[in-house]
Design a protein around this nucleic acid. Structure first.
Lengths: 350, 350
DNA sequence: CTGAAAGCGCTAACAT
DNA sequence: ATGTTAGCGCTTTCAG
């Protein structure tokens, strides 16, 4: 090829996007005035403001968020770390959080929380959240400190679900209130000795708190639970099925009442009971927990302890934003109650 | 109060976070060397590198992402706009997208897409995505241009679900393939005249494509569908129930086969059929669409056309990142097939 | 009310 | 291999 071709300057591909200077030139003002016209319109003459506005529109100017952030240290970004982004639970929280964030002029950066103490957890989180102004950190396990890499960022952090060590504010769920309501509901027509609690893994706070509430209710009714009445295992349909297969066949002669730590477990019991030809709620009464959408679809419809997920998400964001915009407010610690929705699976027989 | 108190300088609250200069001072090198030690370690002497590393750790230095971005125009952020953040569908995509993004060193900014053409849509999206390097835009409605405010950003955009006008790359779902498989499955033991398609709103591409595939299959079987065999309405359990109540009672003498556009609709049919005392799959055979998690839980388990949601999310991110890092690649247009999972609700009777 | 100028913290030429 | 320096695009005193 002709060597001279190399002398022809390469066309600049990178089209510099329009900057504040371009707008200033176009409107025949200084960049300072453009900045003011955009951010503090009241400091600028009306006539100037419109001229700038026109220039902005004609040029399609968009402030560079990096440059803005460099000065203001603000990004309008909120981090949201969820334990696993699995299941409806996390999702509904995220959904309401997103809606609330938008409403307040923020945007949400999601991230599944890497497994506890994994090495990647460290840099991952910190890197991920390098631009956010605050973080909502969720968890359901009990042992919780804010990961050091996160607290190093010195950001406002609102802990959701469990009491985080190092969080600025905390949003908790009173799992006991709903579990208590459910247990009392069951006890209203079923003898304490015939009530069972099927829990999930004991390190999950919700499962544990519900177990405690259940036990307390039985004790209050004058019949502290036998060991076989409160069993913690896992959150799966299989566990519900397994338990039901082991226990229900020998109990056809009397009503059995079950409080399951999740709707999934409850479904397992429902299915097995149906398979055994036992009637619900006459022979087996079942209450789940979580208020999953399945609860009202499945037949029989499932009584369930509702966790206010939408409120949890909304409040998490609202708290976080309040903290960001008003840092000196005293730390907030809110506990949201859970409540019982009675449906066919545990209905009282007249 | 003593006036002299005012002479005492206010303590600077705002603790300037440690900057690259602080590290440079501590390590007795220039800021350029610190920058290199961090970003291009191979350009720096091993001994210097470790000294810098130590300084960084001792000071707890974290590069300022705004300043970095100002130079590099990179944020490591990917925007993900979903039509409504409702339902499992969006969520599973988000989940797999998040996982893939992390894997590639990016982070996801979520945003429910404001309703088509709403005024807020404009500024909202653009503002929200001011920091992202690319956007994955999902939709299920047919008429789709990329919102102008978004295309003004001149970012790589991958359209997911439908063919976006203005998207750089496109990821589509072949809803026909699964619907065809389902229809053929139904036709294998049920006469074409006894097959029905219950659709959702006609502006949803999935619903429409499935309707077309269904019709085509019936035609191919020599029996083009009557108008009452292909009905589009809405995606709700209520619609399934309504249809079943209207149609099924008069069809007890022969098998009825139903392809429903969503699992929700299918559940409605299942419930009503059960309520009418009709047996599934003997008298009524049902196939849903979407592969929702409920499908394998409910009894009878529901045959369903599976949409590869996890792959959709993963591929969306992978495509987007490829485009960001290699802008000159020819536009990609991928179509993912759907397939049929046969379960109890439509099982062939031996 | 507006303009000039000083950075914000960093990367990337360009020197050395 | 390292240092010097010029910005990136914006906000914000500080003067006029």
């Amino acid at each position: 090829m002709d060597e001279r071709e190399n002398l022809i300057p390469r066309i600049r591909i990178r089209k510099r996007s329009v900057s504040i200077q371009d707008v200033a030139d176009r409107a025949a003002v200084s960049i300072a005035t453009v900045s003011r016209a955009v951010n503090k319109p009241h400091l600028v003459a009306a006539e100037t403001a419109t001229r700038v506005q026109h220039a902005i529109e004609e040029l399609g100017y968009r402030p560079n968020r990096f440059a803005q952030g460099l000065m203001t240290q603000r990004s309008g970004l909120l981090g949201m770390a969820l334990p696993d982004l699995r299941g409806e639970f996390d999702f509904e929280i995220l959904r309401s959080a997103d809606a609330e964030a938008r409403r307040l002029g923020y945007q949400i950066l999601v991230s599944a929380l890497p497994p506890h103490g994994s090495p990647s957890s460290a840099s991952a989180l910190a890197g991920a959240f390098g631009l956010v102004e605050g973080v909502a950190l969720m968890a359901l396990e009990s042992d919780n400190r804010v990961p050091p890499q996160l607290s190093d960022l010195r950001l406002p952090i609102v802990g959701v679900g469990v009491s985080f060590d190092g969080a600025t504010d905390v949003l908790l769920v009173n799992h006991a209130s709903g579990a208590r309501a459910a247990t009392i509901h069951l006890l209203s027509t079923t003898m304490p000795e015939n009530c069972f609690y099927l829990g999930g893994p004991p390190h999950l706070v919700d499962s544990r708190e519900r177990a405690d509430a259940f036990s307390a209710c039985l004790s209050a009714a004058g019949s502290p639970p036998r060991p076989d009445q409160v069993i913690c295992n896992e959150c799966s349909m299989a566990w519900g099925e397994h338990w039901a297969n082991e226990v229900l066949p020998s109990r056809r002669d009397r009503t059995t009442a079950v409080l399951a730590a999740t709707d999934q477990i409850a479904y397992g019991v429902v299915r097995t009971a149906q398979g055994l030809g036992m009637s619900i709620p006459e022979q087996v009464r079942i209450v789940g927990c979580d208020g999953s959408s399945l609860a009202s679809i499945i037949r029989p419809t499932l009584s369930t302890v509702r966790v206010p997920r939408d409120e949890l998400g909304r409040l998490a964001i609202r708290t976080l934003v309040a903290r960001i915009e008003e840092p000196e407010t005293p730390p907030l610690r809110v506990v949201l109650d859970t409540d019982l929705t009675v449906r066919e699976s545990s209905a009282l027989i007249a």
